[in-house]
Simulated scan of single mutants.
Amino acid sequence: MDRIRFEDYKGKKVLIEDFSQMRPGPEFLALIAAAQKMIASQPQKSVLAVLDATGASFNNEILAAMKDFTKANTPYVKAAAVTGINGLLQVALSSISKFSGRSFNAFPTREAALDWLVQQ
């Protein structure tokens, strides 16, 4: 299963960014780069994206990469939702939000995030 993929959800094309259980390192950075490439290939303000961070770990390198990733994606993203955010990940999300000038809607489950996204 590809961690970065488009899926049809209730008739809408949604980008799934599955960062669940990822740990800092080259694989995490490669996944961020793959997501960036996929998003940048889409028309501006067209992407509905859900980022699943369930059980993921971040360090300063990953946090910096996520900030750059989020800022670069801003022209392409219509709406974004996040799931799996708790504890220190909430602090990281707040930092990314401030850096990128974007707000994120956090949800307790991927299904809740998807339901919200398709209403946008």
Rank of each mutant, 00 (worst) to 15 (best):
L88Y: 13
A79V: 05
L15Y: 02
A106E: 13
F69D: 00
Q36W: 05
F99E: 12
L88T: 11
E111K: 15
V91E: 11
F19H: 06
S57L: 14
I85V: 15
A79W: 02
L88F: 13
P43F: 10
S57I: 08
I4G: 01
M66S: 05
A112V: 07
A34H: 02
V82A: 08
S46Q: 12
R110N: 09
E17Y: 05
L48E: 00
A30R: 13
A56L: 04
K67D: 03
P108K: 11
I32Y: 00
R5P: 04
L89Y: 07
A35K: 02
F69E: 02
F28V: 06
N73H: 12
S103F: 10
F104K: 07
K10R: 15
Q36H: 12
A34Y: 01
I32G: 01
Q120P: 06
L93Q: 10
T109P: 04
L114T: 02
E27M: 11
S57V: 08
S94P: 02
L51W: 06
F58L: 12
R23E: 12
G101C: 11
P108G: 06
V91D: 12
V50R: 03
M38C: 14
F107K: 14
E27Y: 09
N73S: 15
F104E: 02
L114W: 02
R110C: 10
V14T: 02
G101L: 09
S100D: 04
I32D: 00
L114N: 04
G87T: 07
T70W: 03
F58Q: 10
L88D: 10
D115I: 06
M22H: 08
A81N: 01
A106N: 13
I39F: 01
Y76T: 06
A65I: 00
R102M: 15
A92V: 14
W116N: 09
Y9L: 10
S95I: 15
I16G: 00
L63G: 01
S103E: 13
R110M: 14
F58E: 10
V50Y: 02
A40E: 15
Y9R: 04
V77F: 10
S94L: 12
M66N: 05
A64D: 14
N105S: 15
M38F: 06
N59R: 11
A72L: 03
A64G: 09
K98S: 13
F99H: 15
Q36N: 15
P24E: 10
A40V: 05
K78E: 07
R102N: 13
P108I: 08
M38D: 13
L29P: 00
K10Q: 15
I4N: 04
V47H: 02
I16R: 04
V118G: 12
A106C: 11
M66Y: 03
S41N: 11
V91T: 15
I96W: 00
A49T: 11
S46G: 07
D115M: 11
V50C: 13
T54H: 12
F28A: 04
T74I: 07
R102P: 00
Q42K: 02
T74K: 14
L15K: 09
